[in-house]
Simulated scan of single mutants.
Amino acid sequence: MSIAPDFDSMYAADPDPWEVATSWYERRKIDIALASLRRQRYRFAWDAACGTGELASHLAGRCERVLATDMSAVAVSLSTRRLQPLPQVSVTQSHLPSKPTALEERPDLIVLSEVMYYLPPADRAATYALVDEVAAPEADLLLVNWAPQPEDAYASGLAVFNEANDTLNALGWGRLVTHTDIEFVLGCWSRDLPETIGR
């Protein structure tokens, strides 16, 4: 069975191991993720695996407040420095599927980007249940995965996407947006499905 990487060691050796701040893949993925959000503004977003804080910094332009969390203490330190100029963003350490102590209200946007395939099946199931528990009634969930399977992950991004869709549908969430290409898969789900289209 795959074992998730030692993220602290990775971030200590390289403060941007996936070149999130510089690569075209990452810039394109963030642009598509932001374009997939159906609302112009959100009240409170939870970025549940913020890494170096690049996506959280972009979410700050669409949200009144953002809570960015990561399991890695080194990543949290990097994100805290990266996001310090943005007073609407707070950063804290938290490990999925645990509920962050700083999550004191229900988010209306939850982001799970490039994280779910690093969790074993039981933790993925518990994370979906956590999302369903803490989300505001009108909340949207954005899930982004690299489509193939990282060598240190438990499943491929596509498999996790399909798993998420089945699990969320069973919990009463409907998929609003799907983006699939050769590099990554992205979906946006909500329990608050629009009654009218194109308005």
Rank of each mutant, 00 (worst) to 15 (best):
P85W: 13
G187W: 13
S77G: 15
E138T: 15
G198Q: 02
R43N: 05
L158V: 13
A129L: 14
E64C: 07
R39I: 10
Q40M: 11
V111G: 07
N145P: 03
A164N: 02
D166K: 10
V76S: 03
A147L: 02
A135M: 12
T127W: 11
D132T: 09
S77I: 09
A48H: 11
R175K: 15
D70V: 14
L78K: 00
Q84I: 06
P100E: 07
P100A: 10
L171S: 03
G61Q: 05
L78I: 05
M1G: 09
Y42R: 00
A102L: 06
P121C: 08
G187T: 13
A56Q: 00
S2A: 15
E195Y: 14
T80W: 14
I197E: 11
T22R: 15
R38C: 12
L158R: 14
S23Y: 11
C63W: 01
G53C: 07
I197T: 14
A21L: 01
G172K: 14
P121Q: 15
L55M: 00
E114K: 04
A13I: 03
A49I: 06
Y11S: 06
E151N: 06
N162W: 06
R27L: 13
C50W: 12
H58M: 10
A139D: 07
L78Y: 06
I110V: 09
A139G: 01
A35H: 12
A125R: 15
E138H: 14
Q93I: 05
Y117F: 03
L67K: 04
Q40R: 14
